[in-house]
């Protein structure tokens, strides 16, 4: 009871009408309770169990052995490959996505092109996982349409030159299919937030277009650009289905490793698996905090 009274008293500047104050004090808590219970059961508990498991040995005693185990070459390599592919696709998707978004926003392009490409980006950023991997197998696999076309029509032998869809670069090309459109979707609002007056003011003060970009456009967009790319990084970092169905689990990614661990304890130490999984959460948490910090900053500027 006192709990609720305190909330009402400090609940901000809006005076509560008497009719609301009369309702039972526990009502709000009752309504929010199912949500909280659900979150505890299916979000906090599972995370906590992995966290705890990561610090236990097989008998349940506290140990740092699993954390130490994360720093063995095999697991470090998995993290390294995962980070490398996330970084590559985030930067590539980020750069191309920025130019595409800018091309769509800047004008000179008919409205219907812009809106249909935007819609397509919404679709493509959600079209991932197994079907996406298969679409790329039909395209760039050993007998994929593009592979065959390049070989027969242009005499370019992709696989002969070392390309392999089921490897790092193949996976990167495939990831780009959802990274690029995602970048377009998240960078478009900040680009639209660049005000025409800034460009005009800069020109008026004697700046050339490239000077405008160097001194104003790029610095103002930088937090959004970095933030978006970090988000893309996280997006690729947690990907599992696409990588699994493309490489059949042959590429050493952390997600793939966790998947194998769930299926059959390939690490021969369940607790090391928990530490591995929780390690991903830590990386993601760092990434998302940076993202939100950057986003807040750019909103500060762009909302002026």
């Amino acid at each position: 009871m006192s709990n609720n009274a305190r909330v009402v008293a400090s609940g901000g500047n809006r005076p509560k009408p008497p009719s609301i104050r009369k309702s039972p004090p526990s009502f709000a808590w009752l309504g929010v309770l199912p949500f909280l219970v659900f979150v505890v059961l299916f979000l906090f508990l599972p995370s906590l169990s992995l966290f705890v498991g990561g610090f236990q040995d097989a008998k349940g005693n506290f140990t740092l052995e699993n954390i130490r185990g994360l720093f063995t070459p095999f697991i470090l390599n998995a993290y390294w490959v995962t980070i490398k592919i996330s970084f590559t696709t985030a930067v590539m998707g980020g750069i191309v996505g920025f130019f595409l978004a800018y091309a769509l926003v800047a004008g000179g392009v008919p409205n219907w092109v812009r809106s249909s490409l935007m819609t397509f980006c919404g679709v493509a950023s959600n079209f991932a996982g197994v079907p996406l991997a298969q679409a790329f197998i039909f395209t760039l696999g050993r007998v994929g349409l593009l592979t065959v076309f390049l070989k027969e029509a242009l005499n370019i032998d992709l696989y002969g030159q070392g390309f392999n869809l089921y490897s790092f670069w193949g996976l990167s090309v495939t990831y780009l299919y959802f990274q690029l459109p995602l970048m377009v979707l998240i960078i478009t609002p900040p680009i639209e937030g660049l005000r025409r007056e800034w460009r005009e003011a800069a020109e008026n003060l004697g700046a050339t277009p490239s000077q405008y970009w160097w001194h104003i456009g790029i610095p103002v967009l930088m937090p959004s650009l970095l933030g978006s790319m970090i988000l893309l990084f996280g997006n690729a970092f947690g990907a599992y289905a696409t990588a699994l169905s493309l490489t059949g689990g042959l590429i050493n990614l952390v997600t793939i490793l966790i998947g194998s661990q769930i299926k059959g304890d390939v690490l021969h130490n369940p607790n090391l698996g928990y530490a591995l999984a929780f390690g991903m959460v830590v990386v993601m948490a760092v990434i998302m905090s940076i993202y939100y910090a950057l986003r807040r900053r750019s909103e500060y500027w762009l909302k002026q």
Binding site: F42, L43, L45, P46, S47, S49, L50, G53, G234, F237, G238, Y240, T255, I258, G259, Q261, I262, G273, Y274, A277, F278, M280, V281, M284, A285, M288
Partner: peptide, 14 residues
Amino acid sequence: FVIPAIVLVFGLIR
């Protein structure tokens, strides 16, 4: 957002 699907399912199963 912080918890990849593969980690979530791992935790749920455990």
